[in-house]
Simulated assay, not measured.
Amino acid sequence: MLLSRRDVDKYKSFSMPSRDITQQIFSELLFSHCLTKASLKAFRDCALQDVLLGDYPRVKDSWMDVIASQGSSLLSADLSGSAVTDTGLGCLKDCTNLEALTFNYCDRISECGLKYISGLMKFESLNIRCC
């Protein structure tokens, strides 16, 4: 069965396929600019490892609970250029295996937001520019 980009909003969950297949579906939706807030909900608790939304349009705090639902599976996230705030960044506090986080040009994140993620100890890369 082929997944049609225009039909992606019909799916309520992508938790059944393997993690690799789910990650590929997610990445393809990003690449084709077909990921929406509605389709993102289908990825709740899917154990995605990489959520690279850098400069993806419309990303804001309302997306963060689904991103954070990846929990300890989430290894890298890029929120660059998004409208995510300190509160949204705080959603990542339980993503304990997060190794790489990028949020360049996020003018709604301040030092207060950094306090939320200060307990994450596995960072290999933390990129913050022009915030």
Rank of each mutant, 00 (worst) to 15 (best):
E99W: 02
L98M: 08
F31L: 13
L35R: 05
L126P: 08
V59H: 00
F103E: 07
K115W: 00
K93E: 10
Y11A: 09
A68Y: 01
F26E: 03
D107T: 05
V59R: 00
R58H: 14
R5V: 12
S62L: 12
L89A: 11
N97Y: 08
S15E: 07
A42E: 02
L98R: 04
P17F: 12
K37V: 09
F26V: 07
Q23S: 15
K93P: 10
D65W: 01
R6M: 11
T102I: 04
K60Q: 14
F43M: 11
L79W: 00
S39T: 14
I117H: 07
L79K: 06
K93V: 15
S13G: 10
L101Q: 10
K37T: 08
V66W: 06
L79E: 01
S13W: 01
G119R: 07
C46T: 13
S69D: 02
T36I: 07
G90E: 04
S76F: 02
K115S: 00
T102K: 02
M16N: 14
C112F: 05
N97E: 10
I117Y: 06
S62M: 13
D61E: 09
F103W: 12
H33F: 13
R44I: 03
G119V: 01
S82G: 04
K115G: 01
F43V: 15
D50C: 03
N97M: 11
T87P: 04
D9F: 05
P17Q: 15
T85V: 01
E111G: 05
S13A: 10
K10A: 12
S27Y: 01
T102D: 00
D45W: 09
K37A: 15
F43K: 12
D65K: 08
I109L: 05
R129E: 05
S118D: 07
L79I: 11
D78H: 02
K37E: 11
D7R: 15
D86K: 14
